[in-house]
Amino acid sequence: MPSFPRVLLGLFCLLVAVLLLAPTLVVIPMSFNGNKSLAFPPVGFSWQWYDNFFRNPDWTTSFSNSLVIALIVAVVATVVGTLAAFGVSRAAARTGGLLRALLITPMVVPGVVLAIGIYAVYLDTHLVGTVTGFVLAHTMLAIPFVLIAVQASLEVFDRRLETAAASLGAGRLTVFRTVTLPLILPGILSGALFAFITSFDEIIVALFITSPYLKTLPVQIYTSITRDADPTVAAVGTLLFLATSLIIIAGLLLGMRRART
């Protein structure tokens, strides 16, 4: 029989979990609404909004746009952010601190301010509504996340292992490939994941630099919900929720298997 405080603690945790999850979970029944309304609770049952998502080119193109942009951003931001993390953590303490503060500003500056700045520059450089424009803007927003994740890994990485590898005959590139990289890989991968997500659900800058010819999924969701309150939005939300849950569960299982061996 568990003690009273433990039961209380359990209940409290449950309450927090419900509070965190409820808004997300509400979306699921809404996506099966029989009517063309976002009302809760839904009326009837249908798959039509899922059908709409997969058939309507507005939705499919915006989804593939977001996917392509987020993938490119993940790669570019991870490479640049990892290199930056190396620079920051191996520079002299003061220089490193200054660089880090500078590189993290996109995270601190209000999104709208950044968006206005980017928009102004993009108008002159004709980058509005281009994949390049989106990739550049989102990469800038994603770099701080990669930097922080990789730097955390580098902090616990024992540099003396690099010295040991050199003494065994490894040149600098070989040391990096065979010792440093494998040991900080978890940090790099989580940085890449953060970068992908940062780009994939970015809305503020996207609203500024979007055009009728290039919309990302968040922009499409926003326009759809402000224009016709279509439950397709709920269907998209449910699909994204499922996809991210699967990724996280897979990650956890992988981590558990590695811990056991």
Binding site: R160, A164, A166, S167, L168, G169, G171
Partner: peptide, 14 residues
């Protein structure tokens, strides 16, 4: 050091 062909043992094992 990687071209010196010297074995090194460290206090912290490495």
């Amino acid at each position: 050091s990687h071209k010196r062909n010297i074995g090194v043992v460290f206090q912290h094992y490495a």
